[in-house]
Design a protein around this nucleic acid. Sequence first.
DNA 1: TAAGTCGAAG
Length: 580
Amino acid sequence: MENKQHHSPAYRALLQAGPRLKPLQQVHAHLIVSGSGRIRSLLTKLLSLACAAASITYSRRLFFAIPIPDSFLFNTVVVKTSKLGFSIDSLLFYRRMILSNISPSNYTLTAVIKSCADLSALEVGRVIHGHVLASGYDMDSHVQAALVSFYAKAGDLGVARKVFDKMPERTVVAWNSMISAYEQNGFAKQAIGLFYLMRDLGVEPDSATCVIVLAACAQSGDIGLGNWVHEYVVGQDFDVNVILGTSLINMYARCGHVSRAREVFDSIMELNVVAWTAMISGYGMHGYGTQAVELFNQMRAHGLRPNRITFVAVLSACAHAGLVHEGRHVFASMRQEYRLVPGVEHHVCMVDMFGRAGLLNEAYQFIKEVIREKPAPAVWTAMLGACKMHKNFVLGVEIAEHLLSVEPENPGHYVMLSNIYALAGRMDRVEMVRNMMISKSLKKEVGYSTVEIDQRTYLFSMGDKSHPETNQIYRYLDELMSRCREAGYVPESESVMHEVEEEEMEFALRYHSEKLAIAFGLMKTSDGTAIRIVKNLRMCEDCHSAIKFISVVANREIIVRDRLRFHHFKDGPCSCLDYW
DNA sequence: TAAGTCGAAG
Protein backbone atom coordinates (compact mmCIF):
# COMPACT_ATOMS: atom_id res chain seq x y z
CA MET A 1 0.00 0.00 0.00
CA GLU A 2 2.51 2.57 -1.16
CA ASN A 3 1.72 6.17 -1.55
CA LYS A 4 2.22 6.23 -5.29
CA GLN A 5 -0.34 3.46 -5.60
CA HIS A 6 -2.88 5.78 -4.01
CA HIS A 7 -2.42 7.98 -6.95
CA SER A 8 -2.71 5.21 -9.49
CA PRO A 9 -5.40 5.70 -12.13
CA ALA A 10 -7.33 2.69 -10.78
CA TYR A 11 -7.38 4.10 -7.26
CA ARG A 12 -8.50 7.47 -8.54
CA ALA A 13 -11.26 5.80 -10.51
CA LEU A 14 -12.47 4.19 -7.30
CA LEU A 15 -12.47 7.50 -5.47
CA GLN A 16 -14.37 9.06 -8.30
CA ALA A 17 -16.98 6.30 -8.23
CA GLY A 18 -17.58 7.00 -4.54
CA PRO A 19 -20.09 5.09 -2.45
CA ARG A 20 -22.36 4.31 -5.39
CA LEU A 21 -23.03 0.74 -6.40
CA LYS A 22 -23.24 0.98 -10.20
CA PRO A 23 -20.10 3.09 -10.75
CA LEU A 24 -18.21 0.87 -8.30
CA GLN A 25 -19.15 -2.25 -10.20
CA GLN A 26 -18.03 -0.61 -13.44
CA VAL A 27 -14.64 0.20 -11.97
CA HIS A 28 -14.46 -3.32 -10.55
CA ALA A 29 -15.07 -4.81 -13.99
CA HIS A 30 -12.40 -2.57 -15.39
CA LEU A 31 -9.93 -3.71 -12.70
CA ILE A 32 -10.52 -7.35 -13.59
CA VAL A 33 -10.13 -6.76 -17.30
CA SER A 34 -6.94 -4.75 -16.87
CA GLY A 35 -5.43 -7.46 -14.66
CA SER A 36 -5.34 -5.51 -11.41
CA GLY A 37 -8.33 -7.31 -9.93
CA ARG A 38 -6.22 -8.95 -7.22
CA ILE A 39 -4.38 -5.97 -5.84
CA ARG A 40 -5.12 -5.93 -2.13
CA SER A 41 -5.15 -2.16 -1.61
CA LEU A 42 -7.57 -1.62 -4.47
CA LEU A 43 -9.86 -4.39 -3.29
CA THR A 44 -9.84 -2.98 0.22
CA LYS A 45 -10.82 0.45 -1.00
CA LEU A 46 -13.47 -1.10 -3.21
CA LEU A 47 -14.92 -3.08 -0.35
CA SER A 48 -14.95 -0.09 1.94
CA LEU A 49 -16.85 1.92 -0.66
CA ALA A 50 -19.25 -0.95 -1.35
CA CYS A 51 -20.06 -1.05 2.35
CA ALA A 52 -20.55 2.70 2.37
CA ALA A 53 -22.91 2.27 -0.58
CA ALA A 54 -25.01 0.10 1.75
CA SER A 55 -24.94 -2.82 -0.65
CA ILE A 56 -24.60 -5.76 1.67
CA THR A 57 -24.84 -8.45 -1.02
CA TYR A 58 -22.09 -6.98 -3.14
CA SER A 59 -19.90 -6.34 -0.09
CA ARG A 60 -20.31 -9.93 1.03
CA ARG A 61 -19.38 -11.23 -2.42
CA LEU A 62 -16.32 -9.01 -2.56
CA PHE A 63 -15.18 -10.03 0.90
CA PHE A 64 -15.43 -13.75 0.27
CA ALA A 65 -13.50 -13.39 -2.96
CA ILE A 66 -10.47 -12.15 -1.03
CA PRO A 67 -8.29 -15.14 -0.04
CA ILE A 68 -6.83 -14.22 3.33
CA PRO A 69 -8.43 -11.06 4.70
CA ASP A 70 -6.15 -8.99 6.91
CA SER A 71 -7.15 -7.20 10.07
CA PHE A 72 -7.93 -3.95 8.32
CA LEU A 73 -10.30 -5.68 5.94
CA PHE A 74 -12.06 -7.40 8.80
CA ASN A 75 -12.33 -4.16 10.68
CA THR A 76 -13.76 -2.34 7.70
CA VAL A 77 -16.41 -4.90 7.09
CA VAL A 78 -17.42 -5.32 10.74
CA VAL A 79 -17.58 -1.60 11.41
CA LYS A 80 -19.44 -0.65 8.24
CA THR A 81 -22.03 -3.43 8.41
CA SER A 82 -22.75 -2.59 12.02
CA LYS A 83 -23.15 1.07 11.21
CA LEU A 84 -25.54 0.30 8.36
CA GLY A 85 -27.71 -1.82 10.60
CA PHE A 86 -26.71 -5.19 9.14
CA SER A 87 -26.15 -6.38 12.67
CA ILE A 88 -26.18 -10.10 12.03
CA ASP A 89 -23.71 -9.77 9.16
CA SER A 90 -21.43 -7.73 11.34
CA LEU A 91 -21.50 -10.41 14.04
CA LEU A 92 -20.81 -13.13 11.47
CA PHE A 93 -17.81 -11.24 10.10
CA TYR A 94 -16.63 -10.70 13.66
CA ARG A 95 -16.85 -14.42 14.41
CA ARG A 96 -14.89 -15.18 11.28
CA MET A 97 -12.30 -12.63 12.40
CA ILE A 98 -11.90 -14.30 15.78
CA LEU A 99 -11.70 -17.73 14.16
CA SER A 100 -8.97 -16.41 11.86
CA ASN A 101 -7.01 -15.49 14.98
CA ILE A 102 -7.07 -11.79 14.25
CA SER A 103 -7.40 -9.65 17.36
CA PRO A 104 -10.24 -7.15 17.33
CA SER A 105 -9.36 -3.50 17.87
CA ASN A 106 -11.32 -1.08 20.03
CA TYR A 107 -13.04 0.03 16.84
CA THR A 108 -14.15 -3.51 16.03
CA LEU A 109 -15.38 -4.02 19.56
CA THR A 110 -17.50 -0.87 19.72
CA ALA A 111 -19.06 -1.86 16.41
CA VAL A 112 -20.04 -5.40 17.43
CA ILE A 113 -21.29 -4.22 20.80
CA LYS A 114 -23.55 -1.81 18.95
CA SER A 115 -24.75 -4.71 16.76
CA CYS A 116 -25.61 -6.69 19.88
CA ALA A 117 -27.45 -3.66 21.24
CA ASP A 118 -29.48 -3.36 18.04
CA LEU A 119 -30.35 -7.06 18.27
CA SER A 120 -30.87 -7.01 22.06
CA ALA A 121 -28.58 -10.03 21.98
CA LEU A 122 -27.72 -10.24 25.67
CA GLU A 123 -25.82 -13.54 25.60
CA VAL A 124 -23.66 -12.72 22.58
CA GLY A 125 -23.00 -9.30 24.06
CA ARG A 126 -21.82 -10.82 27.31
CA VAL A 127 -19.36 -12.99 25.42
CA ILE A 128 -18.05 -9.93 23.60
CA HIS A 129 -17.78 -8.09 26.91
CA GLY A 130 -15.47 -10.99 27.83
CA HIS A 131 -13.39 -10.27 24.72
CA VAL A 132 -13.23 -6.62 25.78
CA LEU A 133 -11.78 -7.58 29.14
CA ALA A 134 -9.36 -10.07 27.56
CA SER A 135 -8.16 -7.59 24.97
CA GLY A 136 -7.53 -4.87 27.53
CA TYR A 137 -9.82 -2.37 25.83
CA ASP A 138 -12.07 -2.17 28.87
CA MET A 139 -10.84 1.31 29.67
CA ASP A 140 -11.53 2.70 26.20
CA SER A 141 -14.20 5.36 26.54
CA HIS A 142 -15.92 4.49 23.27
CA VAL A 143 -16.09 0.81 24.19
CA GLN A 144 -17.47 1.67 27.62
CA ALA A 145 -20.16 3.96 26.26
CA ALA A 146 -21.18 1.26 23.80
CA LEU A 147 -21.36 -1.29 26.61
CA VAL A 148 -23.57 0.99 28.71
CA SER A 149 -26.09 1.40 25.94
CA PHE A 150 -25.87 -2.28 25.00
CA TYR A 151 -26.78 -3.43 28.53
CA ALA A 152 -29.54 -0.84 28.67
CA LYS A 153 -31.08 -2.01 25.40
CA ALA A 154 -30.69 -5.67 26.28
CA GLY A 155 -32.56 -4.95 29.51
CA ASP A 156 -29.84 -5.14 32.15
CA LEU A 157 -29.85 -1.68 33.67
CA GLY A 158 -27.88 -2.83 36.69
CA VAL A 159 -24.83 -3.88 34.68
CA ALA A 160 -25.18 -0.78 32.51
CA ARG A 161 -24.88 1.35 35.64
CA LYS A 162 -21.98 -0.73 36.90
CA VAL A 163 -20.00 -0.14 33.71
CA PHE A 164 -20.90 3.56 33.85
CA ASP A 165 -19.82 3.90 37.48
CA LYS A 166 -16.48 2.31 36.73
CA MET A 167 -15.61 4.76 33.98
CA PRO A 168 -12.64 6.86 35.10
CA GLU A 169 -13.77 9.84 33.09
CA ARG A 170 -17.15 10.27 31.52
CA THR A 171 -17.58 12.03 28.24
CA VAL A 172 -20.88 13.65 27.39
CA VAL A 173 -21.65 10.60 25.24
CA ALA A 174 -21.22 8.31 28.24
CA TRP A 175 -23.66 10.45 30.22
CA ASN A 176 -26.06 10.38 27.31
CA SER A 177 -25.85 6.60 27.15
CA MET A 178 -26.66 6.20 30.82
CA ILE A 179 -29.42 8.83 30.91
CA SER A 180 -30.96 7.24 27.85
CA ALA A 181 -30.66 3.83 29.51
CA TYR A 182 -33.01 4.98 32.27
CA GLU A 183 -35.34 6.76 29.89
CA GLN A 184 -35.69 3.79 27.54
CA ASN A 185 -36.50 1.46 30.39
CA GLY A 186 -39.26 3.71 31.70
CA PHE A 187 -37.33 5.33 34.54
CA ALA A 188 -37.84 8.94 33.52
CA LYS A 189 -37.32 10.28 37.02
CA GLN A 190 -33.94 8.58 37.35
CA ALA A 191 -32.98 9.82 33.89
CA ILE A 192 -33.78 13.38 34.92
CA GLY A 193 -31.95 12.93 38.22
CA LEU A 194 -28.83 11.79 36.40
CA PHE A 195 -29.14 14.73 34.03
CA TYR A 196 -29.11 17.14 36.99
CA LEU A 197 -26.06 15.34 38.39
CA MET A 198 -24.30 15.69 35.07
CA ARG A 199 -24.99 19.43 35.05
CA ASP A 200 -23.81 19.74 38.67
CA LEU A 201 -20.53 18.14 37.66
CA GLY A 202 -20.13 20.76 34.96
CA VAL A 203 -20.63 18.58 31.90
CA GLU A 204 -22.23 20.55 29.08
CA PRO A 205 -25.25 18.87 27.50
CA ASP A 206 -25.12 18.47 23.73
CA SER A 207 -28.02 18.13 21.34
CA ALA A 208 -28.27 14.34 21.90
CA THR A 209 -28.60 15.02 25.65
CA CYS A 210 -31.48 17.35 24.84
CA VAL A 211 -33.24 14.73 22.74
CA ILE A 212 -32.94 12.17 25.53
CA VAL A 213 -33.97 14.51 28.33
CA LEU A 214 -36.95 15.75 26.31
CA ALA A 215 -38.11 12.15 25.99
CA ALA A 216 -37.84 11.81 29.77
CA CYS A 217 -39.82 15.04 30.23
CA ALA A 218 -42.50 13.73 27.86
CA GLN A 219 -42.67 10.49 29.80
CA SER A 220 -43.03 12.09 33.20
CA GLY A 221 -44.92 15.20 32.15
CA ASP A 222 -42.14 17.49 33.38
CA ILE A 223 -43.01 20.66 31.48
CA GLY A 224 -40.72 22.76 33.69
CA LEU A 225 -37.58 20.96 32.60
CA GLY A 226 -39.00 20.60 29.09
CA ASN A 227 -39.25 24.37 28.76
CA TRP A 228 -35.76 24.74 30.16
CA VAL A 229 -34.32 22.36 27.59
CA HIS A 230 -36.08 24.23 24.79
CA GLU A 231 -34.58 27.51 26.01
CA TYR A 232 -31.18 25.86 26.32
CA VAL A 233 -31.43 24.59 22.74
CA VAL A 234 -32.20 28.10 21.53
CA GLY A 235 -29.52 29.65 23.76
CA GLN A 236 -26.85 27.25 22.56
CA ASP A 237 -27.95 27.85 18.99
CA PHE A 238 -28.30 24.12 18.40
CA ASP A 239 -29.65 23.26 14.99
CA VAL A 240 -33.29 22.30 15.53
CA ASN A 241 -33.20 19.51 12.99
CA VAL A 242 -36.03 17.09 12.50
CA ILE A 243 -34.88 14.82 15.33
CA LEU A 244 -34.59 17.53 17.96
CA GLY A 245 -37.74 19.15 16.60
CA THR A 246 -39.72 15.93 16.88
CA SER A 247 -38.53 15.48 20.45
CA LEU A 248 -39.84 18.97 21.23
CA ILE A 249 -43.18 18.25 19.55
CA ASN A 250 -43.54 15.06 21.52
CA MET A 251 -42.56 16.73 24.79
CA TYR A 252 -44.99 19.64 24.38
CA ALA A 253 -47.85 17.41 23.25
CA ARG A 254 -47.38 14.96 26.09
CA CYS A 255 -47.02 17.76 28.63
CA GLY A 256 -50.33 19.24 27.55
CA HIS A 257 -49.20 22.11 25.29
CA VAL A 258 -50.51 21.14 21.87
CA SER A 259 -50.26 24.66 20.51
CA ARG A 260 -46.56 24.89 21.42
CA ALA A 261 -46.08 21.51 19.76
CA ARG A 262 -47.70 22.90 16.65
CA GLU A 263 -45.44 25.97 16.68
CA VAL A 264 -42.38 23.75 16.72
CA PHE A 265 -43.89 21.57 14.02
CA ASP A 266 -44.43 24.60 11.79
CA SER A 267 -40.84 25.72 12.32
CA ILE A 268 -39.19 22.50 11.17
CA MET A 269 -37.65 22.79 7.74
CA GLU A 270 -37.41 19.19 6.65
CA LEU A 271 -40.43 17.42 8.02
CA ASN A 272 -40.39 13.65 7.74
CA VAL A 273 -43.00 10.98 8.47
CA VAL A 274 -41.91 10.72 12.08
CA ALA A 275 -42.46 14.42 12.73
CA TRP A 276 -45.87 14.39 11.05
CA THR A 277 -46.82 11.28 13.01
CA ALA A 278 -45.73 12.86 16.30
CA MET A 279 -47.91 15.89 15.63
CA ILE A 280 -50.89 13.78 14.52
CA SER A 281 -50.63 11.66 17.62
CA GLY A 282 -50.31 14.81 19.74
CA TYR A 283 -53.65 16.04 18.41
CA GLY A 284 -55.13 12.59 18.90
CA MET A 285 -54.22 12.28 22.55
CA HIS A 286 -55.87 15.62 23.26
CA GLY A 287 -59.06 14.58 21.53
CA TYR A 288 -58.53 16.88 18.53
CA GLY A 289 -59.58 14.22 16.04
CA THR A 290 -60.52 16.62 13.28
CA GLN A 291 -57.13 18.32 13.38
CA ALA A 292 -55.41 14.93 13.39
CA VAL A 293 -57.28 13.79 10.29
CA GLU A 294 -56.71 17.13 8.61
CA LEU A 295 -52.97 16.95 9.26
CA PHE A 296 -52.93 13.38 7.99
CA ASN A 297 -54.48 14.55 4.73
CA GLN A 298 -52.00 17.42 4.45
CA MET A 299 -49.18 14.99 4.96
CA ARG A 300 -50.44 12.86 2.10
CA ALA A 301 -50.86 15.95 -0.04
CA HIS A 302 -47.18 16.68 0.60
CA GLY A 303 -46.40 13.31 -0.95
CA LEU A 304 -45.22 11.64 2.23
CA ARG A 305 -46.03 8.00 2.75
CA PRO A 306 -47.67 7.22 6.10
CA ASN A 307 -46.33 4.14 7.87
CA ARG A 308 -47.99 1.70 10.24
CA ILE A 309 -47.40 3.96 13.20
CA THR A 310 -48.93 6.94 11.41
CA PHE A 311 -52.05 4.84 10.91
CA VAL A 312 -52.15 3.90 14.57
CA ALA A 313 -51.97 7.61 15.42
CA VAL A 314 -54.77 8.64 13.03
CA LEU A 315 -57.03 5.73 13.88
CA SER A 316 -56.67 6.18 17.59
CA ALA A 317 -57.34 9.91 17.12
CA CYS A 318 -60.58 8.98 15.34
CA ALA A 319 -61.45 6.54 18.11
CA HIS A 320 -60.92 9.14 20.82
CA ALA A 321 -62.98 11.77 19.01
CA GLY A 322 -65.85 9.61 17.82
CA LEU A 323 -64.94 10.09 14.15
CA VAL A 324 -66.27 6.75 12.97
CA HIS A 325 -66.84 7.72 9.37
CA GLU A 326 -63.35 9.17 8.97
CA GLY A 327 -61.79 6.22 10.75
CA ARG A 328 -63.43 3.76 8.40
CA HIS A 329 -62.16 5.72 5.45
CA VAL A 330 -58.61 5.92 6.78
CA PHE A 331 -58.59 2.21 7.56
CA ALA A 332 -59.71 1.36 4.04
CA SER A 333 -57.00 3.58 2.54
CA MET A 334 -54.35 1.63 4.38
CA ARG A 335 -54.69 -1.32 2.03
CA GLN A 336 -56.08 0.40 -1.01
CA GLU A 337 -53.70 3.31 -1.31
CA TYR A 338 -50.63 2.17 0.55
CA ARG A 339 -50.71 -1.61 0.28
CA LEU A 340 -50.15 -1.86 4.02
CA VAL A 341 -51.60 -4.92 5.71
CA PRO A 342 -53.38 -3.83 8.90
CA GLY A 343 -51.94 -5.44 12.01
CA VAL A 344 -53.32 -6.18 15.44
CA GLU A 345 -52.67 -2.63 16.57
CA HIS A 346 -54.88 -1.23 13.80
CA HIS A 347 -57.61 -3.75 14.47
CA VAL A 348 -57.54 -2.72 18.11
CA CYS A 349 -58.01 0.93 17.11
CA MET A 350 -61.01 0.06 14.95
CA VAL A 351 -62.74 -2.07 17.57
CA ASP A 352 -62.00 0.63 20.12
CA MET A 353 -63.43 3.26 17.81
CA PHE A 354 -66.69 1.40 17.20
CA GLY A 355 -66.87 0.43 20.83
CA ARG A 356 -66.46 3.92 22.26
CA ALA A 357 -69.09 5.18 19.85
CA GLY A 358 -71.50 2.62 21.22
CA LEU A 359 -71.57 0.66 17.96
CA LEU A 360 -71.07 -2.69 19.66
CA ASN A 361 -72.55 -4.62 16.78
CA GLU A 362 -70.21 -3.00 14.28
CA ALA A 363 -67.29 -3.74 16.57
CA TYR A 364 -68.30 -7.37 16.88
CA GLN A 365 -68.91 -7.65 13.16
CA PHE A 366 -65.52 -6.13 12.47
CA ILE A 367 -63.90 -8.79 14.60
CA LYS A 368 -65.81 -11.59 12.91
CA GLU A 369 -65.56 -10.40 9.33
CA VAL A 370 -62.57 -8.16 8.82
CA ILE A 371 -60.07 -9.94 10.98
CA ARG A 372 -59.54 -13.16 9.14
CA GLU A 373 -57.27 -15.09 11.45
CA LYS A 374 -57.98 -15.73 15.12
CA PRO A 375 -58.35 -12.32 16.78
CA ALA A 376 -55.50 -11.42 19.12
CA PRO A 377 -56.25 -11.02 22.85
CA ALA A 378 -55.69 -7.26 22.49
CA VAL A 379 -58.63 -7.08 20.07
CA TRP A 380 -60.89 -8.87 22.52
CA THR A 381 -59.65 -6.58 25.27
CA ALA A 382 -60.79 -3.57 23.26
CA MET A 383 -64.15 -5.22 22.69
CA LEU A 384 -64.38 -5.94 26.39
CA GLY A 385 -63.74 -2.29 27.20
CA ALA A 386 -66.63 -1.39 24.94
CA CYS A 387 -68.91 -3.89 26.68
CA LYS A 388 -68.01 -2.42 30.03
CA MET A 389 -68.48 1.15 28.88
CA HIS A 390 -71.89 0.42 27.38
CA LYS A 391 -72.91 -2.06 30.03
CA ASN A 392 -73.34 -5.13 27.89
CA PHE A 393 -72.82 -7.63 30.68
CA VAL A 394 -73.65 -10.84 28.84
CA LEU A 395 -71.19 -10.35 26.01
CA GLY A 396 -68.69 -8.76 28.40
CA VAL A 397 -68.61 -11.74 30.72
CA GLU A 398 -68.30 -14.11 27.76
CA ILE A 399 -65.31 -12.22 26.36
CA ALA A 400 -63.63 -11.79 29.73
CA GLU A 401 -63.87 -15.52 30.40
CA HIS A 402 -62.46 -16.26 26.98
CA LEU A 403 -59.57 -13.89 27.66
CA LEU A 404 -58.90 -15.51 31.01
CA SER A 405 -58.67 -18.90 29.35
CA VAL A 406 -56.13 -17.62 26.78
CA GLU A 407 -54.12 -15.38 29.07
CA PRO A 408 -54.60 -16.66 32.61
CA GLU A 409 -51.61 -14.68 33.89
CA ASN A 410 -52.82 -11.25 32.80
CA PRO A 411 -54.14 -9.40 35.87
CA GLY A 412 -55.92 -6.86 33.66
CA HIS A 413 -58.44 -9.46 32.51
CA TYR A 414 -59.38 -10.38 36.08
CA VAL A 415 -59.84 -6.73 36.88
CA MET A 416 -62.11 -6.24 33.89
CA LEU A 417 -64.17 -9.32 34.66
CA SER A 418 -64.52 -8.25 38.25
CA ASN A 419 -65.57 -4.76 37.21
CA ILE A 420 -68.20 -6.10 34.87
CA TYR A 421 -69.61 -8.28 37.61
CA ALA A 422 -69.61 -5.28 39.91
CA LEU A 423 -71.51 -3.25 37.34
CA ALA A 424 -74.04 -6.02 37.01
CA GLY A 425 -74.40 -6.08 40.77
CA ARG A 426 -73.02 -9.60 41.08
CA MET A 427 -70.93 -8.95 44.17
CA ASP A 428 -70.58 -12.68 44.85
CA ARG A 429 -68.78 -13.05 41.52
CA VAL A 430 -66.63 -10.00 42.20
CA GLU A 431 -65.44 -11.69 45.35
CA MET A 432 -64.75 -14.89 43.46
CA VAL A 433 -62.64 -13.23 40.80
CA ARG A 434 -60.68 -11.36 43.45
CA ASN A 435 -59.94 -14.58 45.24
CA MET A 436 -58.76 -16.10 41.97
CA MET A 437 -56.34 -13.22 41.60
CA ILE A 438 -55.08 -13.57 45.12
CA SER A 439 -54.62 -17.32 44.81
CA LYS A 440 -52.61 -16.80 41.65
CA SER A 441 -50.80 -13.99 43.43
CA LEU A 442 -51.40 -11.66 40.50
CA LYS A 443 -51.06 -7.99 41.23
CA LYS A 444 -52.48 -5.14 39.29
CA GLU A 445 -50.01 -2.45 38.47
CA VAL A 446 -49.99 0.13 41.24
CA GLY A 447 -51.57 3.37 40.19
CA TYR A 448 -50.09 6.73 41.00
CA SER A 449 -50.58 10.36 40.05
CA THR A 450 -48.23 13.28 40.12
CA VAL A 451 -48.94 16.97 40.38
CA GLU A 452 -46.48 19.77 39.74
CA ILE A 453 -46.45 22.77 42.03
CA ASP A 454 -43.79 25.49 41.82
CA GLN A 455 -41.48 23.35 39.69
CA ARG A 456 -41.68 20.49 42.16
CA THR A 457 -43.42 17.20 41.47
CA TYR A 458 -45.43 15.46 44.15
CA LEU A 459 -46.40 11.82 43.85
CA PHE A 460 -49.53 10.24 45.30
CA SER A 461 -50.68 6.65 45.28
CA MET A 462 -54.04 5.25 46.32
CA GLY A 463 -54.77 5.79 49.99
CA ASP A 464 -51.33 7.39 50.29
CA LYS A 465 -50.47 8.56 53.81
CA SER A 466 -46.80 9.25 53.34
CA HIS A 467 -47.16 12.96 52.78
CA PRO A 468 -46.43 15.16 55.83
CA GLU A 469 -49.68 17.04 55.31
CA THR A 470 -51.72 13.86 54.91
CA ASN A 471 -54.40 14.84 57.40
CA GLN A 472 -55.04 18.23 55.87
CA ILE A 473 -55.16 16.70 52.38
CA TYR A 474 -57.70 14.06 53.37
CA ARG A 475 -59.81 16.57 55.23
CA TYR A 476 -59.72 18.94 52.28
CA LEU A 477 -60.66 16.12 49.90
CA ASP A 478 -63.55 14.96 52.07
CA GLU A 479 -64.89 18.47 52.24
CA LEU A 480 -64.44 18.88 48.48
CA MET A 481 -66.30 15.66 47.74
CA SER A 482 -69.19 16.60 49.96
CA ARG A 483 -69.52 19.86 48.07
CA CYS A 484 -69.52 17.80 44.87
CA ARG A 485 -72.27 15.60 46.22
CA GLU A 486 -74.32 18.69 47.00
CA ALA A 487 -73.82 19.71 43.38
CA GLY A 488 -75.18 16.38 42.18
CA TYR A 489 -72.21 14.02 42.09
CA VAL A 490 -73.12 10.41 42.78
CA PRO A 491 -70.20 8.10 43.59
CA GLU A 492 -70.16 5.00 41.45
CA SER A 493 -69.44 1.63 42.90
CA GLU A 494 -67.91 0.23 39.72
CA SER A 495 -64.28 0.12 38.70
CA VAL A 496 -63.34 -0.55 42.26
CA MET A 497 -60.60 -2.89 41.20
CA HIS A 498 -58.99 -0.15 39.19
CA GLU A 499 -56.10 0.24 41.54
CA VAL A 500 -57.08 -1.63 44.59
CA GLU A 501 -56.57 -5.09 45.89
CA GLU A 502 -57.62 -5.36 49.46
CA GLU A 503 -58.86 -2.00 50.55
CA GLU A 504 -62.45 -1.38 51.21
CA MET A 505 -64.44 -0.31 48.23
CA GLU A 506 -65.57 3.07 49.39
CA PHE A 507 -62.24 4.00 50.85
CA ALA A 508 -60.64 2.99 47.59
CA LEU A 509 -62.95 5.06 45.48
CA ARG A 510 -62.69 8.11 47.63
CA TYR A 511 -58.94 8.16 47.76
CA HIS A 512 -57.81 7.28 44.26
CA SER A 513 -54.42 8.84 43.64
CA GLU A 514 -55.66 11.46 41.17
CA LYS A 515 -58.17 12.80 43.71
CA LEU A 516 -55.42 13.14 46.32
CA ALA A 517 -53.16 14.87 43.83
CA ILE A 518 -55.91 17.27 42.79
CA ALA A 519 -56.81 18.05 46.40
CA PHE A 520 -53.18 18.83 47.14
CA GLY A 521 -52.88 20.92 43.99
CA LEU A 522 -55.96 22.95 44.91
CA MET A 523 -54.65 23.50 48.43
CA LYS A 524 -51.28 24.70 47.28
CA THR A 525 -52.07 26.94 44.34
CA SER A 526 -54.09 30.09 44.01
CA ASP A 527 -57.36 30.66 42.17
CA GLY A 528 -57.07 30.64 38.43
CA THR A 529 -54.08 28.30 38.30
CA ALA A 530 -54.74 25.20 36.25
CA ILE A 531 -54.03 21.89 37.98
CA ARG A 532 -51.96 19.45 35.94
CA ILE A 533 -51.99 15.78 36.82
CA VAL A 534 -50.09 12.89 35.25
CA LYS A 535 -51.41 9.43 35.97
CA ASN A 536 -49.76 6.16 35.00
CA LEU A 537 -52.99 4.20 34.52
CA ARG A 538 -56.29 5.08 32.96
CA MET A 539 -58.69 7.07 35.04
CA CYS A 540 -61.71 5.22 36.33
CA GLU A 541 -65.19 6.42 35.52
CA ASP A 542 -65.87 7.54 39.05
CA CYS A 543 -62.84 9.82 39.14
CA HIS A 544 -63.71 11.12 35.70
CA SER A 545 -67.16 12.05 36.87
CA ALA A 546 -65.90 13.41 40.20
CA ILE A 547 -63.34 15.68 38.53
CA LYS A 548 -66.05 17.23 36.36
CA PHE A 549 -67.78 18.30 39.57
CA ILE A 550 -64.55 19.40 41.19
CA SER A 551 -63.82 21.67 38.23
CA VAL A 552 -67.15 23.38 38.97
CA VAL A 553 -67.18 23.61 42.77
CA ALA A 554 -63.52 24.65 42.96
CA ASN A 555 -63.82 26.76 39.82
CA ARG A 556 -60.55 25.45 38.40
CA GLU A 557 -59.30 24.06 35.14
CA ILE A 558 -57.97 20.56 35.70
CA ILE A 559 -55.83 18.77 33.14
CA VAL A 560 -55.20 15.07 33.59
CA ARG A 561 -52.94 12.99 31.41
CA ASP A 562 -53.77 9.33 31.88
CA ARG A 563 -52.11 6.36 30.25
CA LEU A 564 -53.82 6.99 26.94
CA ARG A 565 -54.73 10.62 26.55
CA PHE A 566 -55.46 14.04 28.00
CA HIS A 567 -58.60 15.17 29.78
CA HIS A 568 -59.19 18.91 30.10
CA PHE A 569 -61.89 19.60 32.67
CA LYS A 570 -63.36 23.06 32.63
CA ASP A 571 -66.61 24.26 34.21
CA GLY A 572 -67.94 20.71 34.23
CA PRO A 573 -67.48 18.96 30.91
CA CYS A 574 -64.29 17.17 29.85
CA SER A 575 -62.56 17.68 26.53
CA CYS A 576 -62.81 13.96 25.84
CA LEU A 577 -66.59 14.34 25.54
CA ASP A 578 -66.69 11.10 27.48
CA TYR A 579 -65.00 9.30 24.60
CA TRP A 580 -62.24 7.92 26.66
C1' DT B 1 -8.22 4.10 8.61
C1' DA B 2 -12.62 3.96 10.97
C1' DA B 3 -16.17 4.59 16.61
C1' DG B 4 -19.70 5.21 21.26
C1' DT B 5 -25.12 8.61 22.67
C1' DC B 6 -30.69 10.63 20.32
C1' DG B 7 -36.88 10.73 17.33
C1' DA B 8 -43.03 8.75 16.31
C1' DA B 9 -47.72 4.48 18.97
C1' DG B 10 -48.97 0.77 22.41
